[in-house]
């Protein structure tokens, strides 16, 4: 399946990324090769199989619901590029 330039632009937007036209064109080329490669899965002829989420999420014993010390707020925001009073600073998002 050929992925056109518009589709690449849409995916870039979904990914919260932005590139120059030129870079995007070369990316589109790579992307088509990769898409062709994963296409075999779409067309795979396998017998009906249950989706295997169990392997990862098999939890038969839940963690006890106990209050334990958590990481201090100051450490949680310690790597933030901008912080104030233990909070992450972001541009205003609500009017």
């Amino acid at each position: 399946m050929k992925i056109d330039f518009e589709e690449i632009k849409r995916l870039e937007k979904l990914s919260a990324l932005s590139s120059s036209e030129e870079k995007l064109k070369s990316l589109a080329e790579d992307f088509n090769k990769i898409a062709e490669f994963v296409e075999q899965v779409k067309n795979a002829d396998i017998e009906q199989t249950d989706i295997g989420y169990q392997r990862v999420l098999k939890i038969d014993e839940l963690r006890a619901d106990e209050v334990v010390p958590s990481m201090p707020q100051s450490e949680i925001v310690s790597n933030a590029p901008e912080k104030e009073d233990g909070c992450f600073v972001v541009p205003k998002v609500v009017e």
Partner: peptide, 27 residues
């Protein structure tokens, strides 16, 4: 590239054909 490919296989219209199918093949 990989973030975009991930968004491709998860985006609406492709989710069943790629991601769900891949999980079945995995099983």
């Amino acid at each position: 590239r990989r973030i975009m490919l991930g968004n491709y296989v998860l985006s609406s219209g492709y989710f069943d054909a790629y991601y769900n199918k891949a999980k079945k093949v995995q099983q």
